[in-house]
Write a protein that binds this DNA or RNA. Structure first.
Lengths: 345, 345
DNA sequence: TATTAATAATATAACGTTTTCGTACTCTAG
DNA sequence: CTAGAGTACGAAAACGTTATATTATTAATA
């Protein structure tokens, strides 16, 4: 096991100073052609690579982006990560991913850990618990230390940072409009409690679509679940009751799993999709694509979102402190992917 | 924007030396009670946290694990990551995730990048292209530099590292045996080309199961696909032909998507699942759980795999260089999750 | 010939830590 | 009154870089 090659070792080996080696490798004109070539040849031969940690310390710059997300076993988040990774790699940045597991304390710990020199900035989607607690001191702290932050998907107000959002409202509206256009008139929605911003916005989109068609919103047709991502048995039961008790001809859900549960109940009831009941959901994942019938979905373009978030962050990082204090919100358009769970126009 | 607090700043502020501050904060008995308390109070008040980068440089230890995986939008890999994250966090390690996108060059670049001081060791699943090329110089290099490596899932031989594997053969055998036990006699398999180790092993398990029931393996009933994870239209067509041309009463597939495609064709043919055709697949993801009928799967326990891989790596990292050169292979058991796509016993 | 310029290298400081060693100072004992 | 032992602190080196300042040597100019 040989130790990693350092400037010092090269210097010793070639009987020159460390500075000379460093300069030679960076093609400084201060070093004679001859010495330069000799050093470079040696470095290449023994595969010298500068130590990132030392560079980070020296430059006070890690070239690393910290990503904090509630969970990773989730199609949308993984696509976002893929986008972040792509953009980061293109700009020579590393990505450190930490999971908050929707837990406030873990989010804080992870953030503080990474903030102590490990990353230059953050991309995050705040955990559910953080949203409930409305305690954002950890965010404000890193921001005050000069680390830029970009929030995506689940964002909160009142933080000095950029935001990248899916246009949840428009996406939901579009999805519901599609059902209206294809003849549905009694459309329900399965969404989340309002403290989850995406749930609230999607509900708003649903209502706007109905209003546009002059249909009065019926509170009974809005089912608000506790959890946006999982679906326990209790939750399945709720969906079952919801479908059975309301004679719907269209259902909009904020995720795939809710939609699939709807489909199951609709089948049980002996009804046909999409002829009797249309279904549209958010999140264009494996389930939507491969379910039978395949599901019409509002695609969130997570990858694009990730790329955009990374782009904004890197921009802030590369640009000197000029024109500080300018924060914006970027919206990523959704698109409706029509499949078998809705009638065609 | 205030700058991060350092020992130097504290020292200046309190008119003591840097060493004194450092010692006080680490509760050294060398420092008087009074001074110690004063320094600690100050540090706490202004929320001093040591700089990780400086510590890494000093200790030649980053407390960071590098994870390199082919892709992230994939249920199995995300569960593994979750397991790694858990175990890492429990032992105060960070996790850096890099995606190779199944591309050899990206795998090499990522690895070299992280090896230059960013991580203490690696957990990786080698990319498809790397397996094809059989070029493992990047692995050997980091190992020679003394960084331990743990390979999981897609492993290769001849590398000085630990391995954590799903018992693919046993898992497949079990799945096929279940169909045999429930009366299937003409069982086909949709797998991958043999250079993908998991594909090969699962095929072997399939064959062993048949042999155990005295059924001769028919090469025609083995469909080998190019790609283990994706399913293009061409691939769907292949599956369609395969199902239509062979009058199977059971199909085993190495992933969910293949299985779902099988189900689709079976439906088209007017046959019933599981009465006419049983289906069992690998990977217990969203699709298997929520598809109608839900799919009987071989669950890989990715989370456990991740935890185990991390545990082994951290063990190597924490333990001094004693008893080096001992590498083992750990098998993670699979379990069969019976659902609606197979008949009950 | 003495001064200036150019060339080619080295020394040093800095990034933020920890740790080893050294050094004042005070107190006790011979 | 001084040797020895604590006690409480500081200086300096080290981790691996890079950048600035400095020095030594040679070449060119007045």
């Amino acid at each position: 096991m040989r130790r990693k090659l350092t400037l010092k070792l090269i210097a010793k080996e070639l009987n020159v100073s460390i500075s000379t080696v460093s300069k030679a490798l960076r093609d400084s004109a201060e070093i004679s052609e001859e010495t330069r070539e000799k050093i470079k040849a040696f470095a290449k031969l023994y595969n010298y690579k500068p130590n990132n940690i030392a560079l980070s310390l020296k430059n006070r710059k890690t070239n690393t982006i910290g990503v904090i997300i509630p969970q990773i076993v989730h199609h949308f988040f993984t696509t976002v990560i893929r986008g972040i990774e792509q953009m980061a790699r293109e700009h020579n940045y590393n990505v450190i991913i930490c999971l908050s597991n929707n837990d406030f304390d873990k989010e804080v710990i992870n953030m503080e850990l990474l903030a102590n020199g490990s990353t230059d900035g953050f991309i995050l989607s705040v955990s559910k618990e953080t949203m409930l607690k409305e305690d954002y001191h950890h965010l404000n702290e890193v921001i005050e230390q000069g680390m830029p932050v970009v929030m995506f998907d689940r964002v909160v107000e009142g933080i000095a940072c950029d935001r990248v959002l899916i246009d949840d409202k428009a996406g939901a509206k579009n999805g519901v409009l599609h059902m209206l256009k294809t003849g549905c008139r009694k459309i329900g929605i399965i969404t989340t409690k309002d403290y989850v911003s995406v749930g609230r916005l999607r509900t708003e989109g649903y209502m706007e679509a109905l209003e546009e068609y002059g249909i009065k919103v019926d509170k009974k047709l809005i089912l608000k679940m506790d959890n946006i991502d999982e679906c326990s048995e209790a939750c399945e039961k709720k969906i079952e009751d919801f479908i059975k008790n309301n004679d719907l001809d269209g259902v909009f859900t904020v995720n795939e799993v809710f939609a699939v549960n709807v489909a199951r109940v609709v089948h049980q009831e002996g009804k046909k999709i999409p002829d009797d009941v249309s279904i549209v959901c958010f999140t264009d994942g494996d389930l939507s694509q491969h379910f039978i019938p395949s599901l019409t979905t509002v695609s969130q373009h997570g990858e694009e979102m990730g790329r955009k978030a990374a782009e904004i962050l890197i921009n802030k990082l590369e640009r000197p402190e000029d024109e500080e204090e300018e924060y914006g919100t970027t919206y990523i358009d959704t698109s409706l992917i029509q499949r078998e769970s809705t009638r065609s126009l």
